[in-house]
C-alpha cells in the first residue's frame, strides 16, 4: 500500500510522486483517521486505513487536475476527503449486503473479535429503532431539534443550523426530548 508520508514530494503533474509537496497529507490523514475512528461503526474499523487511503488519493487527483494552480484551504481539502470517505463507506456498505453464505464474496460482514459486548450492541440497536419510530411521531420542529441533539449538537448550534433563536431552539429541544422520553417509555424501552 502506498503511504503518503513515505513518498518523496514532487510537483503536481510532473509524473513523479502522486503526492504534491504543497498538500499537507500527513495532517489531513491524521484528521481523517481521528474523524473516522470517532464516527464509523466497528465493522469498518479494520478497513479504515483503506478508506482513508482512497480518500487521500482522490484529493491528490483533484489537486493534480487543477495542475496545482488552485489554493486549497485545509477546509476545502477536508471537504474533498470527506466526500471520498463517504463514497468509500457507501461502497463498502453495498458490498456488505452480499449474503454471508456466499463464500466467493470478496467482502463479508466480519466484526472484529474484540468488539463491544454483543448484548450491549443489541440493546443499543433496539433503543435506536425505538428512537427512530418515536422521531417519526414528533411534530416536525421538535423532530428536527431532537435529531440534532441526538447527533451531538449543542442548543446554540441547533439554533444556528435551523435559523432559530437560542431560546426557541432550547424550547424545542427541551419539549422534543420530553416527547421522545414519553414515547420510549410507552414502548417499554429502558433508558
Amino acid at each position: 500500500m502506498v503511504t503518503p508520508q513515505t513518498q518523496k514530494p514532487a510537483s503536481p503533474g510532473t509524473g513523479g510522486s502522486p503526492f504534491p509537496s504543497e498538500l499537507d497529507l500527513v495532517a489531513l490523514r491524521d484528521d481523517l483517521k481521528r474523524a473516522v475512528a470517532q464516527t464509523c461503526p466497528r465493522w469498518m474499523a479494520d478497513r479504515s486505513d483503506d478508506i482513508i487511503q482512497v480518500a487521500l488519493l482522490r484529493v491528490v487527483d483533484i489537486y493534480r487536475k487543477r495542475e496545482g494552480n488552485a489554493e486549497f484551504s485545509s477546509f476545502y481539502l477536508r471537504k474533498a476527503a470527506y466526500s471520498a470517505v463517504i463514497d468509500e463507506i457507501r461502497r463498502l456498505r453495498r458490498r456488505q449486503e452480499v449474503p454471508l453464505e456466499d463464500e466467493t464474496a470478496e467482502t463479508r460482514y466480519d466484526p472484529p473479535a474484540d468488539g463491544p459486548d454483543p448484548e450491549r450492541v443489541a440493546t443499543s440497536r433496539q433503543v435506536g429503532r425505538a428512537i427512530q419510530e418515536c422521531l417519526g411521531q414528533l411534530v416536525p420542529p421538535r423532530r428536527l431539534a431532537v435529531t440534532l441533539n441526538l447527533q451531538g449538537h449543542s442548543v446554540p448550534e441547533v439554533g444556528r443550523l435551523m435559523d432559530w433563536s437560542t431560546k426557541k431552539a432550547e424550547n424545542l429541544v427541551y419539549r422534543g426530548m420530553a416527547d421522545l422520553r414519553g414515547c420510549l417509555d410507552g414502548k417499554g424501552v429502558v433508558r
Partner: peptide, 26 residues
C-alpha cells in the same frame, strides 16, 4: 436533517462531517 432522522446511513454521514469540522480537527 429531517432525512437524517429517518436514514441512519445519512445520519452517520452527518456525524462524520461534524467530527471533521470540529475545531479540534481544525
Amino acid at each position: 436533517v429531517a432525512h437524517t432522522a429517518a436514514c441512519p446511513a445519512c445520519a452517520e454521514d452527518w456525524r462524520l462531517a461534524m467530527a471533521m469540522q470540529r475545531p479540534e480537527t481544525a
